[in-house]
Design a protein around this nucleic acid. Structure first.
Lengths: 313, 313
DNA sequence: AGGCGTATTTGTCCAGGACAAACAGGCTTT
DNA sequence: AAAGCCTGTTTGTCCTGGACAAATACGCCT
């Protein structure tokens, strides 16, 4: 777990481990691309270890974005930087057309780095729509628009981080407000978390807002929790529902493998609800898939009406 | 980035990629341990790929903990599970003795999974001590105690996650309260974040509380931000200080390499303040190291008195 | 005790071969 | 036209076994 040669001093060239972390391409992938396509073509240090110049790392970052957006590596790895940036752009037109004024406002504030105004705008939207509608409809739209803008190069990574932070702060504030004001809560008790491969915590935060509004006691473990720990936590808290969020950065194999293992190791009476934008997320026996956050409320209602074994949707 | 064989169905055995994520030991390390020490000894599937049984994964998790605590792999890898658990225990006595009553209360609530009471206890401590003292003294003590309890096996991983979540919620609430109530803010503008290898966001959240109380405008990007993005964000937001947090899970090589690169690529007028419990974190030219959060206030004062180039501490 | 040189430990890197899952494209069927 | 099936290609991950540098431990001298 130690990186021996960060070589930050040696003018802007990175070790293979540093590139793996920076671009999210595994060492194996970096080596096999070099072997197959001739790119990247890192220089070597005294001890024949790869050193990636900054411009190649930049191109690798762009390639990663394009591949996440659906391009195939073999078709684009060898192309020039100009062709690639051109490739990243044209998608811009379509989704922008159907963006609401609210979404456009938020994107503009993000690009202008008006942090305080962004906070106020988000907080204002919560007040205007109510926490429920905000969490179920506005926030997911915003997240999707920000993700799309990022993947077409319209938004910097740090701007996306800033958005996540601000939305998290606003949502948490609102949830706390509801919690502090309420007198009691009724089952089902809900445990919220994500699998170790899933770093995004926004999904479970939005879901938590909806569950809290339904009067459910919630326990959030945050993101990246090992599966045995999820099972153990569900037992410890006496949860009746375990809610999991899956974003596009998880593969369907990871999701289904994890869900199967969790189902196997947990009391069958505990329901598993899965949601999110992970492609190929399908319901299996003992696992319910909720297409959107709007499906949570009827699900809770069904649970309370005694159909504890039955899955929603 | 795809995991092909989670094999969650095949009774609780994990692929090498899953074990890497779960235990934090790289594939290379797992293979070299097997070659050198004969442990782990995974079975093989049809295609000769390693499959780690659940009990071996459990032992690997324990080994990782012991190594983080200072043991050497070669001395402990081949020992039995009983010897290892015995090895993990004896550290328990000392730190427990100097725990304050408040810390003990929080640990007890955590172990009892009294989520709501934990929230209330933390929120109560904020009111009692004030946000400043809570963020600078109480919260770091709590975090340290929880980390120690976890590393001696006294606390489950999911209990540590729960603690982090609750403390995050309480701190964020309090920060929001201060922000909503204040009329203006004065430079320096502070950008808070962590390097890509550092997943813990509690450090920057505690620091944000202190900076906000000093009247500084703050921008938090959350954890795990690539270094070029940090530089770019600092420029975009016109930050005068970039504050970074380093926990024990970063190596000093990672920290210093990253700090050197950040310093190289950023306007020299922007100060870099680094803090946290990462061993071997040292001040270099252009980088200040703050031993504790208490050092922030005098640092801000010094900055405002015009010593913009001078480093605190 | 404390500083220093040597020996051992340990994690990461390398090459190049192999294979299964994911994908694209052409075909047939409803 | 949409949905299903087959086939060839693309692509990421895993394998083995060798090598070496950084980190650590140990013995020696002051």
């Amino acid at each position: 777990m130690t990186i021996y040669k960060p070589k930050g001093d040696s003018a802007s060239a990175m070790s293979i481990a540093a590139v793996e972390l920076d671009c999210g391409l595994s060492k194996d992938t970096l080596r096999v691309w070099e072997r197959r396509y001739g790119f990247p073509a890192p220089v070597r240090d005294d001890h024949d270890e790869r050193l990636y110049p900054a411009d190649q790392v930049g191109k690798l970052r762009l390639l990663r974005r394009l591949i996440d957006a659906g391009h195939r590596p073999g078709k684009i790895v060898t192309r020039s930087l100009e062709e690639l940036t051109a490739l990243a752009r044209p998608v811009a037109g379509r989704p922008a057309a159907m963006e609401s004024a609210e979404v456009r406002d938020v994107l503009d504030l993000l690009r202008a780095h008006r942090t305080e105004r962004l906070r106020e705008a988000l907080a204002g939207q919560v007040l205007q729509h109510g926490l429920g509608a905000f969490a179920m409809e506005v926030a997911p739209d915003l997240a999707k628009a920000v993700g799309a803008a990022w993947s077409r190069g319209d938004l910097e990574i740090h701007e996306e981080h800033l958005f996540t932070e601000q939305l998290t702060a606003v949502l948490r504030s609102a949830i706390n407000g509801v919690l502090n004001g309420r007198l009691s809560s009724d089952p089902p008790r809900v445990l919220l978390t994500t699998f170790p491969q899933e770093p995004h915590a926004l999904g479970i935060l939005m879901a938590e807002a909806v569950f809290v509004l339904q009067g459910c006691p919630t326990v959030s473990l945050g993101a990246r929790v090992p599966i045995p720990e999820i099972a153990s936590a569900a037992r410890a808290h006496g949860a009746q529902i375990v809610a999991l969020s899956f974003s596009a950065c998880m593969t369907s194999a990871q999701a289904h493998g994890g869900l199967a293992e969790l189902r196997r190791t947990m009391d069958p009476a505990v329901q598993i609800w899965a949601g999110g934008s992970c492609p190929g997320l399908r319901a299996r026996d003992g696992v319910s898939v909720l297409r959107t956050l709007v499906d949570i409320a009827p699900g809770v209602l069904a649970w309370r009406q005694g159909a504890h074994g039955a899955a929603p949707a």
